[in-house]
Amino acid sequence: MTRSALPSSEITPESVYLDRRRFLAAAGVLGAGLVVAPALGACAPAAADASQQGSLGTPYGLQPYDKPNSYEDVTSYNNFYEFGTGKEDPKANAQQFTTKPWTVKVEGLVSKPGDYQLEDFLKPSKMEDRIYRMRCVEAWSMVIPWRGVPLADVIRRAGPTSAAKYVEFTTLYDPKRMPGQGMRYLDWPYNEGLRLDEAMHPLAMLVTGVYGRDLPNQNGAPLRLVVPWKYGFKGIKSIVRIRLTSAMPKTAWSEAIPSEYGFYANVNPEVDHPRWSQATERRIGQFRRIPTLMFNGYADQVASLYSGMDLRRNY
């Protein structure tokens, strides 16, 4: 991601982040704890917040009041209907799920289609730790330190042809391993999609970990999508296929309830869900409501993708 596209006031400049890491490493070698405190004081206050988050990753688009949710909250409360419809079901029902070996099929309008072992698929990219905001369409939210690679990297390597306009993602379909697929809540397998320019945006991420650890099964192991300016359900989990297409892909929730869930699903406080307001949200782990931000706080980076579009119609 280009430095200029970030809201500079809200993130730690990478140089500061790296400098501090090097500095702390050096301090650690010297065992000079007494020296560290005044030295850190010198770069306060900006570094004070960042020092807490530095070990978890680089913050992207965080507000001053945003703090990462606990590992416990992130890994015990989410939607993953393949393992049940309750928020605690995924953790309860996904423990036996095996993710090794895992093959990702790349196909469609690409110059290099193929089946890849997950490790080979990701190896050429540099893993990054990034702290993102996550806004669920149900009006709750979290702040999550993800580990993964830019989606754009992977797509570039696949070589989209000039006819490619959209990217379609598909979850594993295996009712024996994913018990929720025995019920027809959704038209399995779960599908999601992005416009190609959305997919190429540097904030879109293919994620393999959380909190610096491997992604737990309940969070979509071993490979999931994270698009921080869209509602959480766009973040398709346990991906087995990525296909480049010329037509807009069908997506699971907009097929199930088209009046409530659209293809774009951009976080938008001005466009209500038919059954509840999207103007505010409850942050898991804290009591008071906070305002929902346009594009979940990433408007500076992504709003240009949608210039001229009627966001009320393209919800």
Partner: peptide
Amino acid sequence: DLFMGSNWLGADPVK
């Protein structure tokens, strides 16, 4: 859960 940090009702005790 809300005000004393316990965890009887999961991550979203209000709901």
